[in-house]
């Protein structure tokens, strides 16, 4: 069954069209990346799926149910970690579930440990490094009750080393929890390494330019990025993006 269907979504701000007839879908348990240049409207797409504001036209279906303009249907991880500074890490990671239901603290504690944040449960976000904050923010979205997770460029603010670590960590934790993930990035390697499918958005207005099915077997590790096949994929997607410029 389709986890998410985005159907002919169009959105404009102040008479400039940002998204034009964007359509795609995500299967249950699939990891799909949306690749597009900065400012192409990727965050806007998430805001639409999250129901922050309604689209000009088009529809969104989650689990087969029309949810256009409805909030609380996805678990969302924003571009900046957005942890609340007055909440401890423990209180922060249960925020998403707390809004909908009674949070499961034992589960949260287990996740915190899995994320290598053991001992930081009672720390405040300001006491954590950038990578740790992103991990906490990701746990928060995993602990949220919604089954579709939308990640908005979670690693773009991290340095190259931390980013590599985080990508592998994300994959390992995703294999364990098998959720459907929609991942937004402007980094080609990241998109190929993580995803089952990569959807390339064109620039201004954003349309679905092309879809690539990435065949690499899982589990994947970072040595994959050095293989010839990986470079070929990178080249092909790069060519596709170059057409856009």
């Amino acid at each position: 069954m389709n986890k998410l269907v985005v159907d002919q979504l169009t959105k404009s701000f102040d008479s400039s069209i940002i998204l034009q007839n964007v359509s795609f879908s995500i299967q249950e348990g699939e990891f799909v990346s949306i690749l597009g240049p900065s400012g192409s409207g990727k965050s806007t797409l998430f805001h639409l799926i999250g129901g922050l504001y309604p689209p000009d036209s088009g529809d969104i279906y989650i689990n087969g149910e029309r949810t256009t303009g409805e909030k609380g249907k996805i678990s969302y991880m924003p571009q900046s970690p957005s942890l609340l500074p007055w909440r401890t890490i423990m209180e922060n990671v249960i925020l998403g579930s707390e809004i909908i239901e009674k949070p499961n603290k034992a589960e949260a504690l287990k996740m915190i440990q899995q994320a290598g944040l053991e001992g930081y449960e009672q720390a405040y976000p300001s006491q954590l490094s950038g990578g740790m904050k992103q991990r906490a923010s990701f746990i928060r979205s995993l602990l949220s009750p919604q089954s579709l997770i939308c990640l908005d460029e979670p690693f773009s603010a991290l340095d190259e080393f931390t980013r590599m670590d985080m990508q592998e960590w994300l994959l390992s934790i995703w294999t364990e929890h098998q959720r459907s993930i929609l991942f937004v990035t402007h980094n080609i390697e990241e998109a190929i390494f993580l995803s089952d499918r990569v959807i390339v958005l064109s620039d201004r207005p954003a349309k679905v330019q092309r879809e690539f099915k990435i065949p690499f077997a899982r589990p994947r590790n970072s040595s994959l990025m050095l293989t010839r096949e990986f470079l070929n994929w990178k080249k092909e997607i790069f060519e596709e993006l170059k057409v856009l410029v």
């Binding site: 999250g50 909030k71 609380g72 969302y76 609340l84 925020l95 998403g96 909908i100 949220s144």
Partner: peptide, 22 residues
């Protein structure tokens, strides 16, 4: 912070929850 506000709204928080928690 508008980012936190976006997060709370998309997570499905009610007006009361947004007030109390944010």
């Amino acid at each position: 912070n508008p980012e936190w506000m976006h997060y709370m709204k998309m997570a499905g928080a009610t007006k009361g929850q947004i007030f109390r928690k944010l």
